[in-house]
Design a binder for these strands. Structure first.
Lengths: 211, 211
DNA sequence: AGAATACTGTGAAATATTTCACAGTATTCT
DNA sequence: AGAATACTGTGAAATATTTCACAGTATTCT
């Protein structure tokens, strides 16, 4: 067994597994082994099992894990049982794509509002949640106790968006835009397709050169 | 100085810095220190300097780095000087958003084609690159020596998309869809907003509980 | 011109993370 | 029913990564 703080790589992998378990359940499997999970994720079975050491001791054994029980155990450990409120800043193509993503509602994340500084856009778009002008971010986040923010604005507006979210009391940010400065109480996950493509290029290039 | 294989976390940070340097150059700075870079990225200055140890010895010193020289040094080290060819599979909202992203052309990544299995969609959309039916992925990737693929299809189609790319000789994949099984010569970068939101929730929750 | 400052570069130490090796055990097979 | 199998859980070892501490040096200040 294991307690103490959970290492960040473990939290990341547990979340990846959590999502994967939906696929596995959809496929109809009722048992899954650490080896199989590791293969799907590109991790070793040892690592997966060590990660599971942070879950409440489940007396799993000998024929792998039950996907349903695993999901429950992970949800409990990472606090994914209660629904989290989120909002999205920037309703361009990317923001709209995220807003329209059907997965959230069933998965413990509720997108509660969308914001954009272009009021025209707010009128044209339709959504099942309120779409509001950006100057209302702080108030709205505060009033509705929104915990997570997604930033999908052009890079010059990223810092303003972050500042408004933070002033409203946001706890974490997924940022598709340029990196933003935040106090170290706020966690930021940076996402950039361009960076990822470069990382791939870099990994490929450096492993070719130095075998 | 330093050679040998470059650690993956270093490649990742160097790519993040590479992108950040464009912002810094745009702001008009001609000098940037490891401390400043670290603050923007949420890393320590030590780490940044260690990372730079993998760059060709630049005799930078004492008043920080020149953003331009840094960019060149990183590009050289990671092979980002030559343009890389990429393609995108799946032309839903997300795929369209990526395809329309203006940053690539100026940044050493060229999106050469888009694919979708819905031929209607191919006719409706317009783009500056060919939009083709998905069964042509393998041929096209092979013929045009496309190195990187972006998968933005519904989860059930992800594995097929990956298989076609791999058969065509793709070297790396950025995958917005469900995790895919690939031979270990292929590198995959998995991107999921839902996972990122859960990671944030998990990090926040576990650090609250165990201070 | 000389002193103070603000950096970098880098071995060595500290820490975090992964991998190994194997005992223990439910399940499956004959 | 007994043997073989296929797992998990976990200390210990190995490895990777980060942090520290500080010497060296160009730049800025007085």
């Amino acid at each position: 067994m294991n307690s103490g703080t959970i290492p960040q790589p473990t939290v990341e992998r547990l979340c990846a597994i959590y999502g994967l378990l939906d696929d596995i359940i959809a496929e109809g499997s009722h048992r899954i082994s650490s080896t199989q999970l590791g293969e799907r994720l590109g991790e070793s079975a040892y690592t997966i099992r060590k990660d599971f050491g942070f879950l409440p001791q489940g007396r799993f054994s000998s024929a792998g894990y039950s996907p349903e029980e695993l999901k429950t155990a992970i949800a409990e450990t990472l606090g994914l049982k209660e629904e989290r409120s989120a909002c999205i800043i920037g309703l361009g193509r990317l923001g709209q794509a995220v807003l329209a993503y059907p997965g959230f509602s069933t998965e413990g994340i509720a997108i509660r509002a969308g914001f954009d500084s272009d009021t025209n856009k707010l009128e044209i778009l339709t959504a099942s949640v309120p779409l509001l002008p950006s100057y209302r971010i702080t108030d709205y986040v505060k009033e509705h106790k929104i915990e997570l923010g997604i930033i999908a604005v052009p890079s010059k507006q990223a810092q303003t968006a972050a500042d408004r979210l933070i002033e409203g009391g946001i706890q974490g940010i997924v940022n598709f835009s340029s990196p933003v400065a935040v106090p170290d109480t706020i966690r930021v996950r940076q996402i950039s397709v361009l960076d990822e493509l470069r990382i791939l290029a870099g990994l490929i290039y450096t492993s070719e050169r130095r075998p």
